[in-house]
């Protein structure tokens, strides 16, 4: 116990909610060995536990990997998630310090082999700072996540995003149809994707890298608050690298992974489902929209050899 390199194993949740099957995933993963995901824990991370729960609920194994463990040992994992929080206190810039540490060097190398990497909120900031996103020129700092406009600082609310790339392009949206709209919460003070590089956004569109954009409930991409909650360029909420296996996402899928977490007043099918589930605790444990992000990750790992 408490060896410097001790691992934190969380209790396994083996039950996969019924909606999973409906969404088209095979149940064969139960028979195979579960894929193992490292959830990177920096000083200041604060979403690692719920992210681990969402990963486990999606039929994968989750292990929280503390920042001062041997970074080289990360290569034994099948995939990586950099969770939300305030890594290294957002010193210099959000995500900037974490991006310079050994852990990200290892992940950079593993991603080049095709392993899936998801950065949520502060994790998205780390991916941008480390040059993995947009990754048009890997390792180069081509974008930034700038302070929100529209509100005074931090903004937390549920928003809608529209899936804006082809189905199958991004490892984390394999279960979303093109143009599918779904709700997720945002919670950040610096979430505005910006770039000074001319033509970058255009080539990202060409590459199919603009995965999710903030929209109205019926999928209209309107550049106004609160539809675009932070003033992000082209309402961009999530970007993948050209290969599609690295994904920087500002909204929090782990906070929308169960129906119980979903509000009943967002005016979409999930709000409707939440109301239908009223009074049934079992139904509240069914999947929310964010679960499909993690299930896509699992499906990618099971079906794409890398």
């Amino acid at each position: 116990m408490s060896q410097p390199n001790s691992r934190i194993f969380l209790p396994k949740i083996t039950k996969v909610a019924s909606k999973t099957q409906k969404l088209g995933s095979s149940s064969s993963h139960k028979l195979r060995e579960m894929k193992k995901i490292a959830i990177i824990q920096y000083p200041g991370s604060n979403c690692e536990y719920e992210t681990a729960r969402a990963v486990m609920a999606s039929g994968m194994e989750a292990e929280i990997f503390r920042w001062n463990r041997d970074a080289a040992s990360l290569d034994e994992y099948d995939g990586y998630i950099i969770p939300g929080g305030f890594s290294y206190q957002d010193r210099v810039r959000a995500g900037a310090i974490a991006a310079k540490k050994g852990i990200m060097r290892t992940i950079f190398g593993e991603a080049a082999k095709g392993k899936p990497v998801l950065g949520i909120c502060n994790g998205a900031q780390v991916l941008v700072e480390s040059g993995m996103i947009p990754g048009v020129n890997p390792g180069e700092l081509e974008m930034a996540l700038a302070p929100n406009t529209g509100t005074s600082g931090y903004y937390c609310n549920w928003v809608h995003v529209v899936h804006s790339t082809r189905k199958g392009k991004c490892a984390f949206t394999r279960f979303f149809e093109k143009s599918e709209v779904f709700p997720m919460p945002v919670a950040h003070a610096e979430g505005r994707f910006v770039t000074r590089k001319k033509g970058l956004i255009e080539s990202m569109y060409d590459n199919g890298q603009i995965v999710l954009r903030y929209s109205t409930v019926d999928g209209k991409v309107e550049d106004r608050f609160p539809v675009n909650p932070n003033g992000s360029t082209d309402n961009i909420a999530g970007i993948c690298n050209p290969a599609g296996n690295v994904f920087a996402l500002m909204p929090h899928p782990e906070r929308a992974a169960w129906l119980r977490q979903v509000p009943d007043d967002t005016g979409d099918e999930y709000a409707e489902a939440k109301r239908d589930a009223y009074g049934s605790w079992q139904r509240m444990t069914e999947a929310g929209p964010g679960r499909k992000i993690f299930e896509s990750m699992r499906e990618y790992l099971e079906n794409i050899p890398y």
Binding site: N46, C47, Y49, E50, R53, A54, G84, T151, S152, G153, Y154, Y155, C156, P185, A187, H252, E254, R255, A257, W258, Q261
Partner: peptide, 8 residues
């Protein structure tokens, strides 16, 4: 301005 969602 408050994070109402963290911890899930």
């Amino acid at each position: 301005s408050y994070d109402t969602e963290v911890q899930g």
